[in-house]
Each structure stands twice: as structure tokens, then as C-alpha cells.
């Protein structure tokens, strides 16, 4: 039997196969079992009228085009999140700069004053604070990425937009946050006698590479955490391990001179993306942090990690586009 049901305007269409449930009224039929029998008929009907499958994944170029057409939404969503963050506080947006400044003050009090942990690093406080701010950018973006889909299921289930908008937008929010932190960092650098030189311009490409890298990792984790929400419970531990391995608070270079680890391990630590971006930023901003403290081919590494993470992450995220929003 066919299940192409008559619209109410057409009373008892004659072309339909007679139903064996004769006792029912001709226009309204009670359906019970047998959902599979008419599959071919309906598909043929849909295809004959040129209907398309709802919620199918677009091709990669089409996806990129869709994403580009949503750029206004991506930036507006990022800025809105950033603004909403402190809107309940009395001091409001002042906290955007106050929070990183207070963070820096705590690190200075503990490492700079209490422990006096210079660790053989000249200009330790600028070294420490630069490292912490740059690391925070990566770690916050990664954490935001894990919640990009799983924390915005309402949005994913209510509206149409390329889902990559969410992790990209949240990564952009973190970049905006970092730029605000950098104004605090500049103030601190002034306090410790670091003044602008031409090398400060190197911070721009370094940050661009880091932002690309972070966005790529955020895309990967957004897909992982969309399927397995437990990832977001695990990430703080992964991130803390990564932080200590990247020398946000100490110098990997000094580890090498200690001689307790083989050179290969030290080099591997130095070449890990977080360490690369942290050291590049120190190299750009702090005069005493020279190129001898950087791993070889550091700019190639920075760009390579960025392209690998962003390209790979984007494609991998896109491959599950139609599945986001389930469960």
C-alpha cells in the first residue's frame, strides 16, 4: 500500500492504492505498523520534484563559502561573549584588563618575591608573565573549544549555520581577550625596564601563528567533546601537564645545562608548539631573551604547527558536520 497521504483539500484521491483498512474514513487514516514498505515510493516522489536531503553535509569549498558568509555572526558572537563575561560586575569592562594584571601580580608575589625563583633567568618577572599570558591564550582557547559544541547544543539544535563558526568564534574571543591582556603586559614590561624596540613587531606573526594553531586544536577538541563530553573533564589535567612541559614558568634551556636529560628530550620539549609560541613571544618582547634560547628553524616550526593544526583540524571538524547536535 502507498502511504502518500492525501492533503486535506483533496478528498479521497482516486490514484492511491485501496487500503485494506476499509473501516476508516477516506481522508484520515490511522497508522499503526509497517513504516518501511513505501520507502521507494517516497524517495521517488522526492527526487522527481527535486527535493534535497535535509541536513546533508556540504562539500568543503561550499562549507568554506558558507563560513565566510557567516563572518559577521562569528565576530559578533565573539564580541558578545567577551562583553557578557563581566556585565554583572560593578566595574564592568575594567575587569578585562584587571584580571590579567591581578594574575600577573599573584605570580610576581609568589615567584618573584616569596620564592625569589630567578632560576638563572635574567629579567625573570617579564619572562614569567609573558610565558603565563601566552600559555593562557592557548589553554583557554583549547578549553573553550571543548565546550564549543557541547556547551552550545541549544544553538546547534535551533539554527542553521556552519558549526565551525562556534569553535572559530570562541577562539576569536580568546584572541580578543589576549589582546587586552597584552596591554597589561606592556605596562608590566615598562615597569621592569623593557621598552619598545623593532623586535616587538615580531610579536605579530608569532601571535598570528599561535592563534591559527589554537583554533585548529579547538576545532579538533570541539568534535571530540561533542561525541564524548567526558573530554572536558580530562582536559584540565592534559593542559596542566602540557603547561609544565612547555616552560611557561621556567626555562627549558636551563634544563639542558643541568645534564639530567638527553638533548633529544630537551629539543622535543622546545619544539612542542606551546613552547615555540611562548619562546617566540619572549624573544620578541624581552631583550635578554636571545635567539640562542630558541630551537633551530623556529619560524618554520611556528608556521608549520599552525598550518598543520588549522588545516587538519578544520577538515576533521567538517567531516562530522551533519552529526553535531545528536545526543
Amino acid at each position: 500500500m502507498t502511504k502518500i497521504l492525501a492533503p486535506p483539500a483533496q478528498q479521497a484521491p482516486a490514484h492511491q492504492a485501496p487500503t485494506h483498512r476499509a473501516r476508516q474514513t477516506p481522508t484520515s487514516r490511522t497508522l499503526t505498523e509497517d513504516p518501511h514498505a513505501p520507502a521507494e515510493d517516497l524517495r521517488a516522489l522526492a527526487l522527481r520534484h527535486g527535493l534535497t536531503v535535509s541536513g546533508a553535509r556540504p562539500s568543503l569549498p561550499a562549507y568554506v563559502r558558507q563560513l565566510w558568509s557567516r563572518r559577521d555572526f562569528i565576530t559578533a558572537f565573539a564580541t558578545a561573549r567577551l562583553t557578557a563575561q563581566y556585565s554583572q560586575a560593578r566595574l564592568g569592562q575594567v575587569w578585562q584588563v584587571m584580571t590579567p594584571l591581578l594574575n600577573a601580580a599573584v605570580y610576581y608575589a609568589i615567584f618573584g618575591v616569596l620564592m625569589d625563583a630567578k632560576q638563572g633567568v635574567p629579567d625573570y618577572v617579564p619572562f614569567l608573565i609573558t610565558g603565563v599570558f601566552v600559555w593562557t591564550f592557548t589553554s583557554d582557547t583549547v578549553m573553550a573549544g571543548t565546550r564549543a559544541i557541547s556547551g552550545n547544543l541549544g544553538l546547534v539544535r535551533a539554527l542553521h549555520f556552519p558549526r565551525a563558526s562556534l569553535p572559530i568564534s570562541l577562539a576569536l574571543q580568546q584572541l580578543q581577550q589576549l589582546l587586552l591582556s597584552l596591554t597589561a603586559l606592556v605596562v608590566i614590561l615598562f615597569c621592569f625596564g623593557e621598552f619598545p624596540t623593532w623586535s616587538w613587531l615580531l610579536a605579530v606573526p608569532a601571535l598570528l601563528c599561535q592563534a591559527l594553531f589554537n583554533t585548529g586544536v579547538a576545532l579538533v577538541l570541539a568534535r571530540l567533546a561533542a561525541r564524548t563530553p567526558d573530554i572536558s573533564q580530562l582536559m584540565p589535567f592534559v593542559l596542566r601537564t602540557w603547561m609544565y612541559a612547555s616552560g611557561a614558568m621556567w626555562s627549558i634551556q636551563n634544563l639542558a645545562s643541568g645534564g639530567r636529560f638527553p638533548d633529544g628530550v630537551v629539543l622535543a620539549l622546545q619544539c612542542n608548539p606551546a613552547a615555540v609560541y611562548i619562546d617566540l613571544m619572549r624573544f620578541a618582547l624581552i631583550e635578554s631573551h636571545t635567539s640562542t634560547q630558541l630551537p633551530p628553524h623556529v619560524w618554520a616550526l611556528a608556521a608549520g604547527w599552525a598550518l598543520l593544526a588549522f588545516g587538519g583540524g578544520f577538515i576533521w571538524f567538517w567531516k562530522a558536520e551533519e552529526a553535531y547536535g545528536r545526543g
Binding site: L51, V53, S54, G55, A56, R157, G325
Partner: peptide, 14 residues
């Protein structure tokens, strides 16, 4: 709306 993936079957839309 294409927002909830289907397990089996298909939704065709204009």
C-alpha cells in the same frame, strides 16, 4: 529542519 540527524530513513526538503 536538518538539525537533528536521523537514525534511519530520510527527510527530503525543498
Amino acid at each position: 529542519a536538518g538539525l537533528q540527524p536521523v537514525e534511519r530513513g530520510q527527510v527530503y526538503t525543498h
